[in-house]
Design a binder for these strands. Structure first.
Lengths: 249, 249
DNA sequence: TGCTCGCTTTGACCCAGATCAAGGATCGGA
DNA sequence: TCCGATCCTTGATCTGGGTCAAAGCGAGCA
Protein backbone atom coordinates (compact mmCIF):
# COMPACT_ATOMS: atom_id res chain seq x y z
CA UNK A 1 0.00 0.00 0.00
CA UNK A 2 1.82 3.15 0.99
CA UNK A 3 5.52 3.14 1.54
CA UNK A 4 4.85 4.04 5.15
CA UNK A 5 4.13 0.44 5.86
CA UNK A 6 7.82 -0.39 5.61
CA UNK A 7 8.78 1.70 8.61
CA UNK A 8 8.40 -0.86 11.39
CA UNK A 9 11.19 -2.35 13.40
CA UNK A 10 12.65 -5.72 12.56
CA UNK A 11 12.78 -7.56 15.85
CA UNK A 12 12.52 -11.29 15.43
CA UNK A 13 9.24 -12.58 16.79
CA UNK A 14 10.99 -15.56 18.32
CA UNK A 15 13.56 -14.39 20.83
CA UNK A 16 15.64 -17.50 20.26
CA UNK A 17 16.18 -16.65 16.60
CA UNK A 18 19.67 -17.03 15.26
CA UNK A 19 21.58 -13.80 14.91
CA UNK A 20 24.77 -14.54 13.07
CA UNK A 21 27.52 -12.16 12.23
CA UNK A 22 26.98 -10.26 9.03
CA UNK A 23 28.58 -12.09 6.10
CA UNK A 24 29.16 -11.12 2.50
CA UNK A 25 25.79 -9.41 2.31
CA UNK A 26 27.20 -6.72 4.57
CA UNK A 27 29.58 -5.71 1.81
CA UNK A 28 27.02 -6.01 -1.01
CA UNK A 29 26.85 -2.92 -3.16
CA UNK A 30 23.21 -3.61 -3.98
CA UNK A 31 22.16 -3.92 -0.40
CA UNK A 32 20.89 -0.42 0.20
CA UNK A 33 18.73 -0.34 -2.88
CA UNK A 34 17.30 -3.82 -2.52
CA UNK A 35 14.87 -5.79 -0.46
CA UNK A 36 17.76 -6.63 1.88
CA UNK A 37 17.52 -3.18 3.39
CA UNK A 38 14.45 -4.43 5.24
CA UNK A 39 16.71 -6.73 7.23
CA UNK A 40 18.35 -5.23 10.33
CA UNK A 41 22.14 -5.00 10.12
CA UNK A 42 22.83 -7.49 12.84
CA UNK A 43 20.62 -10.11 11.17
CA UNK A 44 22.22 -9.79 7.78
CA UNK A 45 24.04 -13.06 8.33
CA UNK A 46 20.72 -14.87 8.19
CA UNK A 47 20.20 -13.70 4.63
CA UNK A 48 23.82 -14.29 3.76
CA UNK A 49 23.66 -17.95 4.74
CA UNK A 50 20.47 -18.42 2.71
CA UNK A 51 21.52 -16.74 -0.49
CA UNK A 52 23.05 -18.74 -3.30
CA UNK A 53 25.09 -16.35 -5.42
CA UNK A 54 25.40 -16.58 -9.19
CA UNK A 55 27.19 -14.85 -12.06
CA UNK A 56 25.85 -15.23 -15.56
CA UNK A 57 26.68 -13.93 -19.02
CA UNK A 58 24.71 -11.71 -21.33
CA UNK A 59 21.95 -13.71 -22.99
CA UNK A 60 21.67 -16.39 -20.33
CA UNK A 61 18.20 -17.27 -19.06
CA UNK A 62 17.79 -17.62 -15.30
CA UNK A 63 14.00 -17.94 -15.06
CA UNK A 64 11.93 -19.92 -17.55
CA UNK A 65 8.20 -19.31 -17.85
CA UNK A 66 6.05 -22.16 -16.50
CA UNK A 67 8.93 -23.67 -14.51
CA UNK A 68 8.19 -24.35 -10.87
CA UNK A 69 8.57 -21.15 -8.91
CA UNK A 70 10.89 -22.44 -6.19
CA UNK A 71 13.05 -19.38 -5.72
CA UNK A 72 13.07 -15.61 -5.64
CA UNK A 73 15.91 -13.46 -6.93
CA UNK A 74 17.73 -10.26 -6.17
CA UNK A 75 19.93 -8.67 -8.82
CA UNK A 76 23.21 -7.39 -7.40
CA UNK A 77 24.92 -6.29 -10.63
CA UNK A 78 24.02 -5.86 -14.30
CA UNK A 79 20.64 -5.79 -16.04
CA UNK A 80 17.97 -8.25 -17.08
CA UNK A 81 14.72 -8.39 -19.01
CA UNK A 82 11.60 -10.36 -18.10
CA UNK A 83 9.24 -11.40 -20.87
CA UNK A 84 6.32 -13.54 -21.95
CA UNK A 85 5.88 -15.34 -25.26
CA UNK A 86 2.94 -16.19 -27.49
CA UNK A 87 2.67 -19.57 -29.19
CA UNK A 88 4.23 -18.41 -32.44
CA UNK A 89 7.15 -16.63 -30.79
CA UNK A 90 5.81 -13.10 -30.52
CA UNK A 91 7.33 -11.62 -27.40
CA UNK A 92 6.31 -8.99 -24.88
CA UNK A 93 8.95 -7.67 -22.53
CA UNK A 94 7.30 -7.00 -19.18
CA UNK A 95 10.14 -5.01 -17.71
CA UNK A 96 13.83 -4.30 -17.45
CA UNK A 97 15.53 -4.84 -14.12
CA UNK A 98 18.83 -3.63 -12.71
CA UNK A 99 20.98 -3.61 -9.61
CA UNK A 100 18.91 -3.99 -6.46
CA UNK A 101 15.78 -5.17 -8.21
CA UNK A 102 13.83 -8.09 -6.81
CA UNK A 103 11.94 -10.64 -8.88
CA UNK A 104 10.34 -14.03 -8.76
CA UNK A 105 6.94 -13.25 -7.24
CA UNK A 106 4.49 -15.78 -8.58
CA UNK A 107 0.84 -16.05 -7.65
CA UNK A 108 0.71 -19.76 -8.46
CA UNK A 109 3.11 -22.69 -8.49
CA UNK A 110 4.84 -21.58 -11.67
CA UNK A 111 6.66 -18.51 -12.92
CA UNK A 112 4.45 -16.43 -15.19
CA UNK A 113 7.44 -15.12 -17.20
CA UNK A 114 11.02 -15.80 -18.27
CA UNK A 115 14.06 -13.75 -17.31
CA UNK A 116 17.30 -13.26 -19.20
CA UNK A 117 20.47 -11.24 -18.61
CA UNK A 118 21.01 -8.36 -21.05
CA UNK A 119 24.49 -7.63 -19.65
CA UNK A 120 26.85 -9.77 -17.58
CA UNK A 121 24.90 -10.11 -14.35
CA UNK A 122 25.08 -11.21 -10.72
CA UNK A 123 22.21 -12.23 -8.53
CA UNK A 124 21.33 -13.81 -5.20
CA UNK A 125 18.81 -16.61 -5.21
CA UNK A 126 16.66 -17.53 -2.21
CA UNK A 127 14.62 -20.69 -1.89
CA UNK A 128 11.01 -19.75 -1.54
CA UNK A 129 10.41 -22.12 1.36
CA UNK A 130 13.23 -20.52 3.30
CA UNK A 131 11.92 -17.07 2.51
CA UNK A 132 8.64 -18.04 4.11
CA UNK A 133 10.55 -18.77 7.30
CA UNK A 134 12.24 -15.40 7.16
CA UNK A 135 8.91 -13.69 6.53
CA UNK A 136 7.43 -15.35 9.59
CA UNK A 137 10.31 -14.13 11.69
CA UNK A 138 10.88 -10.69 10.20
CA UNK A 139 7.53 -9.16 9.27
CA UNK A 140 9.28 -6.13 7.83
CA UNK A 141 10.47 -8.32 4.99
CA UNK A 142 6.93 -9.13 3.97
CA UNK A 143 6.01 -5.47 4.16
CA UNK A 144 8.90 -4.69 1.90
CA UNK A 145 7.73 -7.31 -0.59
CA UNK A 146 4.24 -5.85 -0.53
CA UNK A 147 5.68 -2.41 -1.13
CA UNK A 148 7.63 -3.75 -4.10
CA UNK A 149 4.61 -5.59 -5.51
CA UNK A 150 2.47 -2.50 -5.11
CA UNK A 151 5.00 -0.38 -6.97
CA UNK A 152 5.31 -2.92 -9.74
CA UNK A 153 1.56 -3.07 -10.07
CA UNK A 154 1.32 0.69 -10.57
CA UNK A 155 4.15 0.52 -13.10
CA UNK A 156 2.41 -2.29 -14.94
CA UNK A 157 -0.78 -0.24 -15.09
CA UNK A 158 1.11 2.73 -16.47
CA UNK A 159 2.60 0.41 -19.09
CA UNK A 160 -0.88 -0.84 -19.98
CA UNK A 161 -1.85 2.76 -20.73
CA UNK A 162 1.25 3.07 -22.88
CA UNK A 163 0.71 -0.18 -24.78
CA UNK A 164 -2.99 0.32 -25.33
CA UNK A 165 -3.26 3.99 -26.10
CA UNK A 166 -0.01 5.78 -26.92
CA UNK A 167 1.46 6.39 -30.38
CA UNK A 168 4.94 5.17 -31.31
CA UNK A 169 6.41 8.61 -30.67
CA UNK A 170 4.70 8.89 -27.29
CA UNK A 171 5.89 5.42 -26.36
CA UNK A 172 9.51 6.27 -27.08
CA UNK A 173 9.26 9.57 -25.17
CA UNK A 174 7.78 7.72 -22.18
CA UNK A 175 10.48 5.09 -22.35
CA UNK A 176 13.29 7.64 -22.40
CA UNK A 177 11.82 9.58 -19.46
CA UNK A 178 11.39 6.33 -17.57
CA UNK A 179 15.05 5.52 -18.08
CA UNK A 180 15.99 9.00 -16.95
CA UNK A 181 13.91 8.69 -13.80
CA UNK A 182 15.53 5.37 -13.04
CA UNK A 183 19.00 6.83 -13.55
CA UNK A 184 18.19 9.70 -11.20
CA UNK A 185 16.80 7.32 -8.57
CA UNK A 186 20.12 5.47 -8.64
CA UNK A 187 21.96 8.74 -8.10
CA UNK A 188 22.80 9.67 -11.66
CA UNK A 189 22.73 13.36 -12.47
CA UNK A 190 22.52 14.98 -15.86
CA UNK A 191 20.39 14.32 -18.91
CA UNK A 192 22.35 11.42 -20.28
CA UNK A 193 20.91 7.92 -20.07
CA UNK A 194 22.28 4.48 -20.72
CA UNK A 195 20.33 2.09 -22.94
CA UNK A 196 21.81 -1.36 -22.35
CA UNK A 197 19.10 -3.18 -24.30
CA UNK A 198 18.84 -3.59 -28.07
CA UNK A 199 16.38 -1.76 -30.34
CA UNK A 200 14.64 -5.09 -30.72
CA UNK A 201 14.18 -5.36 -26.96
CA UNK A 202 12.90 -1.79 -26.75
CA UNK A 203 10.38 -2.68 -29.46
CA UNK A 204 9.23 -5.78 -27.62
CA UNK A 205 8.82 -3.67 -24.47
CA UNK A 206 6.81 -0.93 -26.18
CA UNK A 207 4.75 -3.05 -28.55
CA UNK A 208 6.65 -1.85 -31.64
CA UNK A 209 9.09 -3.27 -34.19
CA UNK A 210 12.83 -2.63 -34.29
CA UNK A 211 12.41 -0.49 -37.39
CA UNK A 212 9.79 1.75 -35.82
CA UNK A 213 11.94 2.25 -32.71
CA UNK A 214 14.90 3.19 -34.88
CA UNK A 215 12.83 5.57 -37.02
CA UNK A 216 11.45 7.33 -33.94
CA UNK A 217 14.94 7.76 -32.52
CA UNK A 218 16.03 9.29 -35.82
CA UNK A 219 13.00 11.57 -35.88
CA UNK A 220 13.65 12.81 -32.35
CA UNK A 221 17.28 13.37 -33.25
CA UNK A 222 16.36 15.58 -36.18
CA UNK A 223 13.76 17.39 -34.02
CA UNK A 224 16.51 18.21 -31.56
CA UNK A 225 14.73 16.42 -28.73
CA UNK A 226 17.60 14.01 -28.23
CA UNK A 227 21.04 13.10 -29.53
CA UNK A 228 22.86 9.79 -29.54
CA UNK A 229 26.39 8.96 -28.38
CA UNK A 230 27.09 5.68 -30.05
CA UNK A 231 24.08 3.46 -30.07
CA UNK A 232 23.46 3.04 -26.36
CA UNK A 233 23.77 6.49 -24.80
CA UNK A 234 21.03 9.06 -25.27
CA UNK A 235 21.17 12.72 -24.27
CA UNK A 236 17.79 14.29 -23.57
CA UNK A 237 17.79 17.92 -24.71
CA UNK A 238 14.15 18.88 -24.16
CA UNK A 239 12.73 17.30 -21.05
CA UNK A 240 9.51 19.31 -21.23
CA UNK A 241 8.95 18.46 -24.86
CA UNK A 242 9.39 14.77 -24.10
CA UNK A 243 7.13 15.09 -21.08
CA UNK A 244 4.37 16.64 -23.18
CA UNK A 245 4.64 13.83 -25.70
CA UNK A 246 4.66 11.17 -22.98
CA UNK A 247 1.52 12.44 -21.29
CA UNK A 248 -0.47 12.47 -24.50
CA UNK A 249 -1.60 16.05 -25.15
CA UNK B 1 4.12 -14.83 -3.55
CA UNK B 2 2.39 -18.20 -3.48
CA UNK B 3 -1.11 -18.56 -2.18
CA UNK B 4 0.33 -20.74 0.55
CA UNK B 5 1.32 -17.65 2.46
CA UNK B 6 -2.29 -16.99 3.34
CA UNK B 7 -2.68 -20.14 5.38
CA UNK B 8 -1.61 -18.88 8.79
CA UNK B 9 -3.82 -18.44 11.79
CA UNK B 10 -5.31 -15.09 12.64
CA UNK B 11 -4.60 -14.66 16.34
CA UNK B 12 -4.28 -11.04 17.33
CA UNK B 13 -0.71 -10.24 18.31
CA UNK B 14 -1.94 -8.18 21.21
CA UNK B 15 -3.92 -10.30 23.58
CA UNK B 16 -5.94 -7.34 24.71
CA UNK B 17 -7.33 -6.78 21.24
CA UNK B 18 -11.02 -6.05 20.95
CA UNK B 19 -13.10 -8.96 19.76
CA UNK B 20 -16.59 -7.74 19.12
CA UNK B 21 -19.57 -9.73 18.04
CA UNK B 22 -19.85 -10.16 14.32
CA UNK B 23 -21.99 -7.42 12.79
CA UNK B 24 -23.38 -6.94 9.31
CA UNK B 25 -20.21 -8.28 7.73
CA UNK B 26 -21.21 -11.70 9.01
CA UNK B 27 -24.18 -11.66 6.66
CA UNK B 28 -22.28 -10.18 3.71
CA UNK B 29 -22.69 -12.17 0.53
CA UNK B 30 -19.31 -11.03 -0.71
CA UNK B 31 -17.48 -12.09 2.40
CA UNK B 32 -16.27 -15.49 1.31
CA UNK B 33 -14.83 -14.26 -1.96
CA UNK B 34 -13.22 -11.13 -0.57
CA UNK B 35 -10.32 -10.01 1.52
CA UNK B 36 -12.59 -10.27 4.54
CA UNK B 37 -12.20 -14.06 4.51
CA UNK B 38 -8.75 -13.45 6.01
CA UNK B 39 -10.42 -12.21 9.17
CA UNK B 40 -11.40 -14.86 11.72
CA UNK B 41 -15.15 -15.17 12.22
CA UNK B 42 -15.14 -13.97 15.78
CA UNK B 43 -13.24 -10.81 14.81
CA UNK B 44 -15.55 -9.86 11.99
CA UNK B 45 -17.07 -7.15 14.15
CA UNK B 46 -13.77 -5.28 14.02
CA UNK B 47 -14.10 -4.94 10.27
CA UNK B 48 -17.78 -4.23 10.50
CA UNK B 49 -17.26 -1.24 12.75
CA UNK B 50 -14.58 0.12 10.46
CA UNK B 51 -16.37 -0.21 7.16
CA UNK B 52 -18.38 2.64 5.74
CA UNK B 53 -20.94 1.16 3.36
CA UNK B 54 -22.05 2.82 0.13
CA UNK B 55 -24.47 2.26 -2.73
CA UNK B 56 -23.90 4.04 -6.02
CA UNK B 57 -25.52 4.14 -9.44
CA UNK B 58 -24.17 3.07 -12.80
CA UNK B 59 -21.77 5.68 -14.11
CA UNK B 60 -20.80 7.14 -10.73
CA UNK B 61 -17.11 7.61 -10.01
CA UNK B 62 -15.88 6.51 -6.59
CA UNK B 63 -12.12 6.88 -7.07
CA UNK B 64 -10.56 9.76 -8.98
CA UNK B 65 -7.00 9.48 -10.29
CA UNK B 66 -4.49 11.69 -8.44
CA UNK B 67 -6.80 12.18 -5.45
CA UNK B 68 -5.26 11.43 -2.07
CA UNK B 69 -5.36 7.71 -1.47
CA UNK B 70 -6.97 7.74 1.96
CA UNK B 71 -9.12 4.64 1.67
CA UNK B 72 -9.28 1.13 0.28
CA UNK B 73 -12.43 -0.47 -1.10
CA UNK B 74 -14.17 -3.80 -1.27
CA UNK B 75 -16.95 -4.35 -3.78
CA UNK B 76 -19.90 -6.23 -2.30
CA UNK B 77 -22.30 -6.08 -5.24
CA UNK B 78 -22.24 -4.99 -8.88
CA UNK B 79 -19.33 -4.24 -11.21
CA UNK B 80 -16.83 -1.45 -11.77
CA UNK B 81 -14.07 -0.44 -14.15
CA UNK B 82 -10.75 1.17 -13.24
CA UNK B 83 -8.99 3.29 -15.82
CA UNK B 84 -6.29 5.83 -16.59
CA UNK B 85 -6.50 8.79 -18.97
CA UNK B 86 -4.06 10.55 -21.28
CA UNK B 87 -4.02 14.32 -21.55
CA UNK B 88 -6.28 14.44 -24.58
CA UNK B 89 -8.85 12.04 -23.16
CA UNK B 90 -7.64 8.73 -24.57
CA UNK B 91 -8.52 6.10 -22.01
CA UNK B 92 -7.09 2.76 -20.98
CA UNK B 93 -9.24 0.52 -18.82
CA UNK B 94 -6.93 -1.31 -16.41
CA UNK B 95 -9.46 -3.84 -15.25
CA UNK B 96 -13.04 -4.75 -14.51
CA UNK B 97 -13.97 -5.62 -10.94
CA UNK B 98 -16.93 -7.42 -9.46
CA UNK B 99 -18.35 -8.74 -6.22
CA UNK B 100 -15.64 -9.51 -3.70
CA UNK B 101 -12.90 -7.60 -5.47
CA UNK B 102 -10.59 -5.38 -3.52
CA UNK B 103 -9.09 -2.14 -4.80
CA UNK B 104 -7.35 1.00 -3.70
CA UNK B 105 -3.74 -0.14 -3.38
CA UNK B 106 -1.54 2.83 -4.13
CA UNK B 107 2.24 2.87 -3.96
CA UNK B 108 2.35 6.61 -3.28
CA UNK B 109 0.13 9.20 -1.66
CA UNK B 110 -2.29 9.35 -4.58
CA UNK B 111 -4.46 6.91 -6.49
CA UNK B 112 -2.89 5.98 -9.82
CA UNK B 113 -6.28 5.39 -11.49
CA UNK B 114 -9.98 6.29 -11.42
CA UNK B 115 -12.82 3.88 -10.70
CA UNK B 116 -16.42 4.01 -11.88
CA UNK B 117 -19.46 1.77 -11.45
CA UNK B 118 -20.64 0.03 -14.63
CA UNK B 119 -23.76 -1.34 -12.92
CA UNK B 120 -25.52 -0.26 -9.72
CA UNK B 121 -22.93 -1.12 -7.12
CA UNK B 122 -22.28 -1.52 -3.39
CA UNK B 123 -18.97 -1.29 -1.65
CA UNK B 124 -17.33 -1.09 1.75
CA UNK B 125 -14.76 1.62 2.29
CA UNK B 126 -11.96 1.40 4.87
CA UNK B 127 -9.76 4.28 5.95
CA UNK B 128 -6.20 3.45 5.12
CA UNK B 129 -4.90 4.53 8.52
CA UNK B 130 -7.30 2.17 10.24
CA UNK B 131 -6.33 -0.63 7.90
CA UNK B 132 -2.75 -0.19 9.00
CA UNK B 133 -3.89 -0.85 12.57
CA UNK B 134 -5.71 -3.98 11.49
CA UNK B 135 -2.67 -5.15 9.56
CA UNK B 136 -0.50 -4.75 12.64
CA UNK B 137 -2.90 -6.81 14.67
CA UNK B 138 -3.93 -9.42 12.11
CA UNK B 139 -0.92 -10.32 9.98
CA UNK B 140 -3.05 -12.64 7.90
CA UNK B 141 -4.76 -9.58 6.45
CA UNK B 142 -1.48 -8.28 5.09
CA UNK B 143 -0.70 -11.69 3.63
CA UNK B 144 -4.04 -11.64 1.94
CA UNK B 145 -3.33 -8.21 0.47
CA UNK B 146 0.03 -9.43 -0.79
CA UNK B 147 -1.66 -12.42 -2.34
CA UNK B 148 -4.14 -10.12 -4.08
CA UNK B 149 -1.42 -7.76 -5.28
CA UNK B 150 0.62 -10.66 -6.57
CA UNK B 151 -2.34 -12.01 -8.52
CA UNK B 152 -3.13 -8.62 -9.96
CA UNK B 153 0.47 -8.20 -11.00
CA UNK B 154 0.42 -11.46 -12.93
CA UNK B 155 -2.87 -10.44 -14.54
CA UNK B 156 -1.45 -7.06 -15.48
CA UNK B 157 1.54 -8.77 -17.09
CA UNK B 158 -0.73 -11.05 -19.06
CA UNK B 159 -2.65 -7.97 -20.19
CA UNK B 160 0.61 -6.32 -21.27
CA UNK B 161 1.23 -9.31 -23.53
CA UNK B 162 -2.27 -8.92 -24.92
CA UNK B 163 -2.01 -5.16 -25.50
CA UNK B 164 1.47 -5.24 -26.97
CA UNK B 165 1.42 -8.32 -29.14
CA UNK B 166 -2.02 -9.80 -29.84
CA UNK B 167 -4.22 -9.10 -32.87
CA UNK B 168 -7.77 -7.79 -32.50
CA UNK B 169 -9.22 -11.26 -32.92
CA UNK B 170 -6.83 -12.75 -30.37
CA UNK B 171 -7.63 -9.94 -27.94
CA UNK B 172 -11.36 -10.63 -28.14
CA UNK B 173 -10.85 -14.38 -27.74
CA UNK B 174 -8.67 -13.75 -24.65
CA UNK B 175 -11.24 -11.38 -23.23
CA UNK B 176 -14.09 -13.85 -23.64
CA UNK B 177 -12.11 -16.68 -22.07
CA UNK B 178 -11.14 -14.40 -19.21
CA UNK B 179 -14.78 -13.61 -18.56
CA UNK B 180 -15.61 -17.31 -18.69
CA UNK B 181 -12.87 -18.14 -16.21
CA UNK B 182 -14.15 -15.45 -13.88
CA UNK B 183 -17.71 -16.74 -14.16
CA UNK B 184 -16.53 -20.24 -13.33
CA UNK B 185 -14.51 -19.01 -10.35
CA UNK B 186 -17.68 -17.43 -8.99
CA UNK B 187 -19.49 -20.73 -9.34
CA UNK B 188 -21.14 -20.28 -12.71
CA UNK B 189 -21.37 -23.35 -14.90
CA UNK B 190 -22.00 -23.53 -18.62
CA UNK B 191 -20.56 -21.65 -21.55
CA UNK B 192 -22.62 -18.54 -21.23
CA UNK B 193 -21.03 -15.33 -20.01
CA UNK B 194 -22.36 -11.97 -18.97
CA UNK B 195 -20.83 -8.82 -20.48
CA UNK B 196 -22.01 -5.93 -18.31
CA UNK B 197 -19.69 -3.39 -19.93
CA UNK B 198 -20.24 -1.54 -23.22
CA UNK B 199 -18.40 -2.25 -26.48
CA UNK B 200 -16.66 1.05 -25.94
CA UNK B 201 -15.37 -0.12 -22.55
CA UNK B 202 -14.24 -3.43 -24.01
CA UNK B 203 -12.34 -1.48 -26.65
CA UNK B 204 -10.68 0.72 -24.05
CA UNK B 205 -9.70 -2.41 -22.13
CA UNK B 206 -8.20 -4.19 -25.15
CA UNK B 207 -6.62 -1.23 -26.91
CA UNK B 208 -9.20 -1.25 -29.73
CA UNK B 209 -12.05 0.94 -30.96
CA UNK B 210 -15.76 0.24 -30.48
CA UNK B 211 -16.11 -0.55 -34.18
CA UNK B 212 -13.31 -3.11 -34.19
CA UNK B 213 -14.76 -4.84 -31.12
CA UNK B 214 -18.16 -5.00 -32.78
CA UNK B 215 -16.73 -6.30 -36.05
CA UNK B 216 -14.78 -9.05 -34.27
CA UNK B 217 -17.91 -10.14 -32.40
CA UNK B 218 -19.75 -10.33 -35.72
CA UNK B 219 -16.92 -12.27 -37.31
CA UNK B 220 -16.83 -14.81 -34.46
CA UNK B 221 -20.58 -15.15 -34.69
CA UNK B 222 -20.42 -16.02 -38.38
CA UNK B 223 -17.51 -18.39 -37.69
CA UNK B 224 -19.69 -20.22 -35.20
CA UNK B 225 -17.25 -19.57 -32.36
CA UNK B 226 -19.85 -17.66 -30.37
CA UNK B 227 -23.44 -16.49 -30.45
CA UNK B 228 -25.08 -13.50 -28.80
CA UNK B 229 -28.22 -13.34 -26.67
CA UNK B 230 -29.12 -9.70 -26.74
CA UNK B 231 -26.09 -7.51 -26.57
CA UNK B 232 -24.66 -8.52 -23.21
CA UNK B 233 -24.79 -12.31 -23.07
CA UNK B 234 -22.32 -14.37 -25.08
CA UNK B 235 -22.40 -18.14 -25.56
CA UNK B 236 -19.01 -19.72 -26.27
CA UNK B 237 -19.42 -22.63 -28.69
CA UNK B 238 -15.82 -23.56 -29.34
CA UNK B 239 -13.68 -23.23 -26.26
CA UNK B 240 -10.66 -24.88 -27.89
CA UNK B 241 -10.87 -22.68 -30.94
CA UNK B 242 -10.97 -19.58 -28.76
CA UNK B 243 -8.12 -20.94 -26.65
CA UNK B 244 -5.95 -21.44 -29.72
CA UNK B 245 -6.65 -17.90 -30.85
CA UNK B 246 -5.96 -16.50 -27.38
CA UNK B 247 -2.59 -18.17 -27.04
CA UNK B 248 -1.34 -16.87 -30.37
CA UNK B 249 -0.56 -19.88 -32.54
C1' DT C 1 44.68 -3.91 -38.46
C1' DG C 2 41.34 -5.71 -40.83
C1' DC C 3 37.35 -8.90 -41.04
C1' DT C 4 33.06 -10.49 -39.92
C1' DC C 5 28.79 -10.95 -37.89
C1' DG C 6 25.08 -9.01 -35.77
C1' DC C 7 22.88 -4.75 -34.83
C1' DT C 8 21.03 -0.48 -36.57
C1' DT C 9 19.31 2.57 -39.97
C1' DT C 10 16.80 3.79 -44.04
C1' DG C 11 13.69 3.07 -47.97
C1' DA C 12 9.50 1.19 -50.45
C1' DC C 13 5.33 -0.78 -49.95
C1' DC C 14 1.36 -2.94 -47.57
C1' DC C 15 -2.34 -3.96 -44.33
C1' DA C 16 -4.83 -4.30 -39.76
C1' DG C 17 -7.27 -1.52 -37.49
C1' DA C 18 -8.57 3.53 -37.04
C1' DT C 19 -11.58 7.04 -38.65
C1' DC C 20 -15.64 8.90 -40.67
C1' DA C 21 -20.40 8.19 -41.73
C1' DA C 22 -24.96 6.35 -41.45
C1' DG C 23 -28.56 3.20 -40.19
C1' DG C 24 -30.61 -0.13 -36.68
C1' DA C 25 -31.46 -1.95 -32.08
C1' DT C 26 -32.35 -1.30 -27.23
C1' DC C 27 -33.70 0.71 -23.04
C1' DG C 28 -35.41 3.95 -19.62
C1' DG C 29 -38.77 7.38 -18.70
C1' DA C 30 -43.23 9.79 -19.39
C1' DT D 1 -46.54 2.32 -25.92
C1' DC D 2 -44.22 5.88 -27.59
C1' DC D 3 -40.14 8.87 -27.72
C1' DG D 4 -35.55 10.19 -27.40
C1' DA D 5 -31.06 9.04 -26.32
C1' DT D 6 -27.60 6.00 -26.31
C1' DC D 7 -25.44 2.03 -27.85
C1' DC D 8 -24.40 -1.17 -31.45
C1' DT D 9 -23.52 -2.60 -36.14
C1' DT D 10 -22.02 -2.13 -40.78
C1' DG D 11 -19.84 0.18 -44.74
C1' DA D 12 -16.22 3.10 -47.08
C1' DT D 13 -11.93 5.02 -46.78
C1' DC D 14 -7.53 6.30 -44.70
C1' DT D 15 -3.13 5.85 -42.26
C1' DG D 16 0.34 4.59 -38.59
C1' DG D 17 3.11 1.32 -38.05
C1' DG D 18 4.29 -3.36 -39.84
C1' DT D 19 6.80 -6.03 -43.37
C1' DC D 20 10.28 -6.81 -46.65
C1' DA D 21 14.67 -5.52 -48.45
C1' DA D 22 19.19 -3.70 -48.43
C1' DA D 23 22.78 -0.79 -47.12
C1' DG D 24 25.71 1.31 -42.94
C1' DC D 25 28.16 0.63 -38.76
C1' DG D 26 30.75 -0.98 -34.82
C1' DA D 27 32.42 -4.16 -31.37
C1' DG D 28 34.98 -8.19 -30.78
C1' DC D 29 38.18 -11.45 -32.50
C1' DA D 30 42.07 -13.44 -35.17
Amino acid sequence: MSSSIANGTCEPLETGAAKRDAGHCAACTARNVSICQAMPDDCMGVLDSMASKHSIKKGETFITEADEANAVFNITAGSAKIYKLLGDGRRQIIGFLGTGDFLGLAPGRRYPFSAEAITPMKYCQFKRTRMETVFAEYPTMRRKILEIASNELAEAQEQMLLLGRKTAEEKIASFLLGRLQRAKALGGGGNSIDIPMSRHDIGDFLGLTTETVSRQFSKMKSNGLISLKGTSTVMLHDHDGLQTLASGY
